[in-house]
Amino acid sequence: MTLDIILFAVFPYVAVVLAVIVGIYRYVVDRFSYSSFSSQFLENRALFFGSGIWHYALLIILLAHIIALLFTDAWAAFIANPTRLYTLEGLGVALGISTVVALAILALRRLLNPRIRTTTTVLDWLLIVTLMTQVSLGVWVALFYRWGSLWYMYTAVPWLVSLATFSPQVSYIASLPWIVKLHMLGGFVLTALFPFTRLVHLIAFPITYLWRPYQVVIWYARRRATS
């Protein structure tokens, strides 16, 4: 029980605070280090198979988690129909397995390609191992603890809401199998790792490109003078 409290009522706050404080600190003090550190320039065949699938599949799965959390009622209504539930779960498992395979390709690439190996840091490896554990756990849970999209709404969602409202209630998830709990913990471990690793490229996603004019001209003096 105390372990539950430490892991699921205290650690999440620690993780989020770390992410925000260190993330901001790193942005202010060492903005140069905010990069995706792409290695495509050194190797692009394995990356082609790994990177695209990894990112897209992961984004969709992540989005499903977030939608179910934010729009619980709509989500419940949507999966009330068994056909939709099965399709959704099937799709989820397929995407989940894709992320595992894609990440395996990327990890092997880092391990086996000497060029990529030299540009990989210890933190990169830590990140890869954590991500691999997390997505594998996710697939495991989806396969053997059916149906996740259903019980997620009555366990993880209220727990996350309790965290967000600063009245943490670990009782919602206390009786879940440990493997499911590990997946939940994994989410916050990744949050804690976020500011220390190349994961920061997540918040650097250049969405503003869509409305920015093509050409960028910077005036040294004039810019400030007009503002």
């Binding site: 920015r212 960028v216 910077i218 005036w219 040294y220």
Partner: peptide, 15 residues
């Protein structure tokens, strides 16, 4: 190069 950079990191100096 400037037009292709999604981050807006490349720029032409006005002066």
């Amino acid at each position: 190069c400037v037009a292709a950079c999604p981050a807006g990191a490349i720029y032409k100096r006005g002066e």
